[in-house]
Design a protein around this nucleic acid. Structure first.
Length: 297
DNA sequence: CACATTTGACCTTG
DNA sequence: CAAGGTCAAATGTG
């Protein structure tokens, strides 16, 4: 029998990572997720009622998130090296991208049946990408449209491909991929990789907020900054902006509305929020709606 | 009906 | 040829 702390005496840092601080960090990350979600529900409700307490509540939420962020960073500082080497699945973010090159028109395009693909059908157009690991892969303030999903080798989870909703309207070339990474306790973590910058207008003011540079690509701190930035943004927001920036939070607007229209008990609401925190958080609004209506089973 | 998602085919790259 | 990225028809949803 070995006690958990013994592994820290070894040079195997990854074991140390697993045994000691990780559960604590997972819990705090989950807490951040919960708080963020709660805020997404509460603030819009207060704002629409022109409630003066909205600002205070926003600040309180911000302080709470700030606290947990600091705790995570403190814990993380114990094993920076470990976190800098991402989990196996996260490394997948391929090297093929880095080597993209020219090649116009396909050579295989001989037969007429395939000639419809004369339009460009290239692979990744960007060599620059930013990645992050987050329990809330969709809450980045931008509107995305899913255009594909693939099974990925050596991975149990599919990868989803998203492009900016305004790709055609505004020629915004931002895309992202989302793939479930691992289960951190009850929290499911996702790797989100962003390609290209948003050039769409509705998001210009927030572009820097959501395309987050990750000096330590898979670190928890990325999640921290994500939530922290979101917090900052929310703190300064009024209702119209909230609706825009939190377009991905739309689901939670739905929640709040459901709360009112369906006459949910507070207890149910709590249960619902917890469901989203623990479960896969890439629920679309329709999925959340479905859960609400089905009584959270 | 318009828009979003799903899904299989197609394309590029290594 | 396998793997991954993209397209677009089919389908679903409000």
């Amino acid at each position: 029998m070995k006690n958990k702390s013994s592994c820290c005496l070894k040079t195997d840092v990854s074991n140390c990572f697993r045994c000691d601080h990780r559960p604590a960090i997972d819990e705090i990350v989950r807490e951040q997720s919960l708080v963020s979600q709660l805020r997404a529900v509460v603030l819009p409700a207060l704002e629409t009622k022109a409630d003066e307490r909205a600002e205070i509540v926003a600040q309180l939420f911000g302080s709470i998130l700030d606290c947990s962020r600091k705790v995570i960073c403190a814990l993380r500082s114990h094993y920076v090296g470990v976190l800098e080497s991402p989990p196996p699945e996260a490394v997948v973010i391929d090297k093929r991208r880095a080597k993209r090159k020219n090649s116009e028109g396909s050579k295989k395009m001989g037969d007429g049946a395939k000639s419809k693909s004369v339009h460009e059908h290239k692979r990744r157009r960007y060599t620059n990408s930013t990645s992050q690991v987050t329990p809330v892969p969709h809450y980045d303030g931008h509107q995305w449209r899913k255009y594909g999903q693939k099974n990925i080798n050596n991975s149990n989870h599919q990868r989803s491909y998203y492009r900016c909703t305004y790709k055609h309207e505004q020629n915004c070339k931002a895309t992202k991929t989302v793939q479930q990474l691992y289960n951190a306790g009850e929290t499911i973590m996702y790797t989100v990789v962003y390609y290209g910058q948003h050039t769409c207008k509705t998001n210009t003011s927030n572009a820097s907020l959501h395309v987050i540079e990750t000096s330590t690509p898979q670190s928890i701190s990325t999640t921290c900054s994500d939530l922290g930035d979101t917090r900052q943004k929310l703190d300064n927001m009024h209702t119209p902006e909230l609706a825009e920036v939190c377009s991905e939070f739309g689901s939670y607007h739905t929640l709040e509305e459901e709360h009112n229209t369906l006459g949910l008990e507070d207890e149910d609401m709590h249960k619902l929020l917890d469901t989203f925190a623990c479960g896969p958080l890439d629920l679309d609004s329709w999925e959340i709606d479905a859960i609400v209506r089905s009584g959270f089973c």
